[in-house]
Nucleic acid binder design. Sequence first.
DNA 1: AGTTGTACCATTACCATGCATGGTACATAT
DNA 2: ATATGTACCATGCATGGTAATGGTACAACT
Lengths: 126, 126
Amino acid sequence: MQISVDIDDPIPLFVQIIEQIKQAVVEHNLIPGQPLPSIRQLANDLNLNSKTVAKAYKLLERDAIIQSKGYRGTFIHPDAASNCGTNLKGLIAETLEQAISQLRNEGATDSEIRIEFANIMNNRVS
Amino acid sequence: MQISVDIDDPIPLFVQIIEQIKQAVVEHNLIPGQPLPSIRQLANDLNLNSKTVAKAYKLLERDAIIQSKGYRGTFIHPDAASNCGTNLKGLIAETLEQAISQLRNEGATDSEIRIEFANIMNNRVS
DNA sequence: AGTTGTACCATTACCATGCATGGTACATAT
DNA sequence: ATATGTACCATGCATGGTAATGGTACAACT
């Protein structure tokens, strides 16, 4: 498995890692049960901080693309291929788009929407 | 009609203006049809930029609290009192809260929600 | 001892945003 | 001329969030 990152790319490094692993899964270059390099190992290879790689792995595990087995390492999830299709990102976009377009129709300003959004995300009381 | 602003107050100046005019409406110190100072006039009295006052007036007109009649000036809207009750801000908060809590239940990260939100607000293609 | 994933603490730099400012211009009226 | 609301251009400043960095520590296993 070849993974590379481009620091000059505006795409965040942890996203670059995620996309490459997902791509390898859909192309069957990575098959279920196959081991992935350890967080520290991959971080070392890419000259990245281990936290950056850990973040990518964490998100991949949440989406059931990979499986972390503690001291035994990290492996491709049995249902990795099908879970690559489930687009959580798409659901997020769809849900937010619906809410935002509704609010815009109600006459809300983008500025007001942004402010209220920030309040909610920070659990502030408005 | 007495309006005053406090520059040291963390509340934005245009919000201070809006709140005071709304307050005056609910207290019947401002009644429908009554004229408001012109944008430039009020800006001059408060030592503010005219754009700041214009912003406050624009939002007040959107909420049907006041009515702008071009060169004739700005006046209190006939339904000002009742429209002071309709809380657009509350609607925004409610709509967004519903969407966000749903996404959080689906497993979405706050970070992901924020990114997608920014994409939508900027009409970027994701 | 060495490695695994994970969880905290923290800081730095960058970028987007909101607020307020300034200038200019327009049509429409007195 | 003067005044009205409104629309565009632009800037400086402060704020807040993300991304990425670093250090430390833990339990569990080889």
